Computed example of a mutant assay.
Amino acid sequence: MFRKIILVVAFIAGPAWSENKSFDLQVPNILIESGFIKHLLPRFSLKTGIRITPVSESADAAFGAYGVAVFRQGEKIWHLEKVDGVYTDRFAQWLLSDIGKRTIEGFTQDGEPLFFADVGVALEAQIITITGDAGQGEVVSLKKCGRCHVINASNRMKAIGSTPSFALMRTFPDWKNRFEAFFTLNPHPAFTQVKEVTEPFSAKLPSPIVPIEVTLEEIEAIVAYVAGIVPASLGAPMQSQ
């Protein structure tokens, strides 16, 4: 009789366990220590059935300085950077939804909210100085970045689908910094050389693919070209049910 009960329980619970609706989220200590994460994540899980495990190392998603702005703490803007996926996408959409915003602002200490969903009030207009040649930037982008990224309609079917397009990256608040220093951001250091800037590849650790070689002038041109790209429309956030 006892064995039958175990089998029945395993049969009922098995599909739920195997689905494993979860992902890891890299969270800075300052957010952990504030108690905000213990307030935020369980409420998302209760609404969606998706479990999020906060970790200190690299993960499927991260709260930090990069990605989409999702909430602010005083004058500090917190962003969500993530890999594409059903559960990470749902989390990003939830944070930007009305219920997500109410949850963010529902966390208080001594009756006062510490986090706010209206990130716009803390963002100041920035004057971005562009000095490169945009025409040259398009040519260089297609030639040296187009094998992985969608640059424009001309290489839409030739790039790697899992890498973000230039139009998508143009939506990032820090897009200019990212493009200027792209060669320092993974996975680029493994196969990118910048003339008179980066060290040559080690003989023991050569580039795993045909390397990309660019100059600082070409990087400035790429930035000038990206500055003129219309940012991708990400659409309205999905409303949680």
Score class of each variant (00 low, 15 high):
residue 1 M to L: 07
residue 3 R to M: 10
residue 4 K to W: 08
residue 6 I to C: 07
residue 6 I to H: 09
residue 13 A to K: 07
residue 13 A to I: 15
residue 13 A to W: 07
residue 14 G to C: 13
residue 16 A to S: 04
residue 19 E to M: 13
residue 24 D to W: 02
residue 29 N to Y: 11
residue 31 L to K: 00
residue 31 L to Y: 00
residue 34 S to M: 05
residue 35 G to P: 01
residue 36 F to R: 01
residue 39 H to N: 09
residue 41 L to A: 07
residue 44 F to P: 02
residue 48 T to D: 01
residue 51 R to P: 00
residue 52 I to Q: 06
residue 53 T to S: 10
residue 56 S to Q: 05
residue 57 E to F: 11
residue 58 S to P: 04
residue 58 S to L: 06
residue 59 A to S: 11
residue 60 D to F: 07
residue 62 A to V: 07
residue 66 Y to A: 11
residue 66 Y to W: 12
residue 67 G to F: 11
residue 69 A to S: 15
residue 69 A to G: 14
residue 70 V to D: 03
residue 71 F to T: 09
residue 71 F to K: 04
residue 73 Q to E: 15
residue 75 E to Q: 13
residue 75 E to G: 13
residue 79 H to F: 10
residue 87 Y to A: 13
residue 88 T to K: 04
residue 93 Q to I: 05
residue 100 G to W: 08
residue 100 G to K: 06
residue 104 I to D: 03
residue 104 I to T: 12
residue 106 G to F: 05
residue 109 Q to H: 14
residue 109 Q to D: 09
residue 117 A to E: 07
residue 117 A to D: 03
residue 118 D to T: 11
residue 121 V to W: 02
residue 124 E to T: 15
residue 126 Q to D: 05
residue 131 T to Q: 10
residue 132 G to S: 00
residue 132 G to I: 04
residue 133 D to I: 12
residue 134 A to M: 03
residue 136 Q to K: 15
residue 139 V to T: 04
residue 141 S to F: 06
residue 147 R to H: 07
residue 148 C to P: 03
residue 150 V to K: 14
residue 153 A to H: 01
residue 154 S to W: 03
residue 161 G to V: 05
residue 162 S to Y: 08
residue 163 T to R: 15
residue 163 T to N: 15
residue 165 S to N: 13
residue 167 A to R: 07
residue 170 R to S: 05
residue 170 R to N: 07
residue 176 K to V: 08
residue 177 N to L: 00
residue 179 F to N: 10
residue 179 F to A: 07
residue 181 A to E: 12
residue 181 A to S: 12
residue 187 P to N: 06
residue 189 P to Y: 09
residue 190 A to K: 15
residue 192 T to S: 07
residue 193 Q to A: 11
residue 194 V to L: 08
residue 196 E to N: 15
residue 199 E to S: 11
residue 199 E to L: 14
residue 199 E to D: 13
residue 203 A to P: 04
residue 203 A to N: 02
residue 203 A to K: 14
residue 204 K to F: 12
residue 205 L to F: 05
residue 211 P to R: 13
residue 211 P to T: 14
residue 218 E to A: 05
residue 222 I to F: 00
residue 226 V to K: 01
residue 227 A to C: 01
residue 228 G to E: 04
residue 231 P to Q: 06
residue 233 S to Y: 03
residue 237 P to M: 05
residue 239 Q to Y: 03
